[in-house]
Write a protein that binds this DNA or RNA. Structure first.
Lengths: 342, 342
DNA sequence: TTGAAAGCGCTACCAT
DNA sequence: ATGGTAGCGCTTTCAA
């Protein structure tokens, strides 16, 4: 493996000149630059990452902490991951993958060893134990998701409260007034991932503001969970004409259950789902959905990390506004005229 | 951040002694060892990864190259990823995540910069362009999957040929003689991922050996693809009583289509699917399946990489034998007595 | 069983 | 616009 001094010799310049044409931190004449670049290409030179990290205290690596087996849908996680990796590459950074189950120790390990320049954490919980640890690291970090107290912490996420409001607004615009929320599994609430409560909060608030009659229920996974959830909704809100589904895993069994019961979507029941595009279009009925912008959120997380690294001031929190995409699961609701007997 | 010399001073020993208690490459008296460890804990010392890599030419990092948006099911990819990360951690290694779309350049970049000790590649193709490049790297690599010519290359994968044979054997054991293969989408064959053809080869060979009547069809994604595939199968193999499904994405629409046509599983049609456990049990009918042992394959890939790093001889290729898990989608087939008229 | 010190390959400061 | 060089923090010989 050639070193920087091999390149320098081949190009007839000093090591520092080679270093500077590589980093661009100093003006170099076009001619010298060409000679150095030719030598680099000729020799197939790659700067040694460790040496560079040692000398510069910069690794060009980002840590990404992903949840393993949570109730978060795996495809969504993967979308965040690919978004982060792709965005990181545009900044000439690589991504070191950590799993959440290593907990605080994992963060301290890679940060303490100076393996990474910054950290990005997914699946942040209400009172996440890792947050105090982050403050002790010398590297900056960015959260995907919001803890209860996000003060002074860089956070990025979809604006779930606004998303809930948009879903209700969309349905209200179609004449629906009795609307139920099929929420995430109770485990999600218990774990304390705040997107669930942020969505629920936005839902409740918007329902009141819009004068809607609503109920909200978490939904256990599987056919059984969906069935129970629907039964409770029907019992508590008779005449419900629309569902907001904030539970990706529940979508397939839910549609199946409705079909089995002869309730047509959207003729008998309208649905707005909160999910990524591809799951919305991959189901028997193409669902009108509030998009989960994994790509955008992941990209912003990386941008934020880069700003932090460059000492640039950045907004502490970034809430990505919702986008509703209309497809085939929402129909206009006409109030039924109650036929009085006689 | 404390350095090794801070630790040495605090413990009243030399730098090299600290280094050796950390690496265990030299006997150190219990007493000295205790003093050094105490100093390390006291100061919260973490060796600097870059400095270590520079001095030792070892990074304690593995590269893992994952496919992005292929026709491989995302949950399966994620299972491999978590298996590799988890296994790597047991060897005190971390994982740098690369995407396949960076191609050969990505491999050369991380290997050339000495960012990793070894590489693990998923989604290897028949005549993968990256393979010649791997030979030029100074780091060893392990493939998950098999190229056409696996000579001299470390490869790990499920034994798809044996898996196909097991599936047929299982169905034959239940009295089935007319069996169809619902294969991966044509795109998979075209891309040249060899697991598809290895499975098909094993299927054809076993069918002949067992004296079965079979047909095999690729299956395009979506409801439409499933419908077409079933139609062709019924046309070419009337009286088909069992399906081997080597196409995870096709499973949900396939079951739905059968249900819609009034064909009960397993009473009218038996099914053996090739898929991970969790998708087999997550469908309306709990499917008898040949497991995709992502965890085992990922773990073996890491072990192999470690062996290679330690200069240990390892078998070039590792084929993980199949496991059939019986669930509710296979029934015994009783040959219909053709009622002769009159 | 331990210490001393020579690099590993690069960056960035101090020069000119 | 370019060169010289002192470290960055560690591993690993060589010595004792």
């Amino acid at each position: 493996m050639p070193t920087i001094s091999d390149v320098a010799r081949a190009a007839g310049v000093s090591m520092s000149t080679v270093s500077y044409v590589l980093s661009g931190r100093r003006p170099i004449s076009a001619e010298t630059q060409a000679r150095v670049k030719a030598a680099i290409a000729e020799l197939g030179y790659h700067p040694h990452a460790g040496a560079r990290a040692l000398a510069s205290s910069r690794t060009s690596v980002l840590a990404l902490v992903v949840p393993l087996r949570v109730d978060v849908s795996v495809p969504v996680i993967m979308q965040f991951v690919t978004a982060v990796v792709t965005a990181a590459r545009t900044y000439n950074h690589d991504v070191l993958l950590l799993t959440k189950d290593e907990g605080t120790a994992g963060l301290e390990r890679v940060a303490g060893a100076t393996m990474v320049d910054a950290l990005i954490l997914m699946d942040v919980e209400r009172d996440d134990v890792r947050i105090p640890a982050l403050g002790r690291l010398k590297q900056p970090s960015v959260l995907i998701g919001f803890p209860d107290d996000a003060a002074g912490i860089a956070c990025v996420d979809l604006d779930f409260a606004a998303t809930a409001a948009e879903c209700l607004g969309h349905l209200a615009g179609h004449g629906h007034t009795r609307i139920a929320l099929v929420g995430p599994s109770p485990a999600v609430y218990e774990r304390g991932t705040t997107y669930a409560s942020r969505f629920l909060g936005g839902f409740t608030e918007a329902a009141e503001r819009l004068g809607l009659e609503t109920v909200a229920h978490p939904c256990e996974p599987g056919v059984r969970g969906v069935r129970d959830c629907l039964a409770q909704i029907d019992a508590e809100l008779p005449g419900v004409s629309a569902l907001v589904v904030h539970n990706e895993e529940a979508l397939p069994p839910l549609l199946e259950e409705l079909r089995a019961n002869g309730r047509r979507v959207p003729q008998d029941l309208s649905i707005v789902a909160v999910c990524p595009r591809d799951v919305a279009v991959g189901l028997p009925v193409r669902l009108t959905s509030a998009d989960i912008p994994a790509h955008e959120v992941g990209t912003i997380a990386v941008e934020t990390a880069m700003n932090l690294l460059d000492g640039r001031r950045t907004p502490g929190t970034r809430l990505v506004p919702p986008t509703i995409i209309e497809r085939d699961s929402c129909a206009t609701h006409h109030e039924e005229i109650s036929a009085s007997p006689g």
